[in-house]
Design a protein around this nucleic acid. Structure first.
Length: 116
DNA sequence: ATTCTGACAGCAA
DNA sequence: TTTGCTGCCAGAA
C-alpha cells in the first residue's frame, strides 16, 4: 500500500502491535519475548517504544498485558493513571502486588512457544 | 548527518 | 541478594 498517510505499515512497530493484540485474555508476556518473536531478541527496548506510540493507533492494543521479564509493571505510568494498568490486569485475573505480577509464570504467554 | 532517548535484558561487582 | 552499567535497535529532535 503506497504510504497510507503513514510510513510503512509493516514496520517493526506494527508487528509489535499485532503480536500484542493476539495476547489471550488473562495472559501476559514480556517485552523481550515479543522482541525475540520478531527476530530481534535484543530490541526489547524498541517494543516498549512501540507501545509508547500505540496510543496513536485507532485500534485497542492490550499493552497492559506486556510487562518486563520480572513481571514488573514498568509501563504503568504510561496509562494515564498509574493504577489503570494494574486495574486492567487484575480485572483479567492477574494478581498484582507492589506493581509486580505474583502469578507471572502462571499467566506468562510466550509467542514463541504458543505461536511457534 | 549526528546525538539523545526509551514501557528492556543481561551481566558484573 | 541488590544495585548499577552496558548493549541493543529504531525513531525523534
Amino acid at each position: 500500500m503506497t504510504r497510507s498517510g503513514k510510513k510503512k505499515e509493516n514496520d517493526f512497530f506494527s508487528r509489535v502491535y499485532e503480536v500484542t493484540k493476539i495476547i489471550p485474555y488473562g495472559r501476559v508476556t514480556s517485552y523481550g519475548a515479543i522482541a525475540r518473536y520478531l527476530g530481534s531478541g535484543r530490541s526489547a527496548r524498541m517494543v516498549g517504544w512501540a507501545l509508547n506510540v500505540c496510543h496513536g493507533r485507532p485500534e485497542f492494543i492490550p499493552a497492559h498485558r506486556v510487562v518486563n521479564r520480572n513481571g514488573l509493571l514498568t509501563g504503568k505510568h504510561h496509562f494515564g493513571n498509574s493504577s489503570t494498568m494494574e486495574q486492567l490486569l487484575m480485572n483479567e485475573g492477574i494478581i498484582i502486588e507492589n506493581d509486580r505480577i505474583i502469578n507471572f509464570s502462571e499467566k506468562y504467554w510466550d509467542p514463541l512457544t504458543e505461536l511457534q
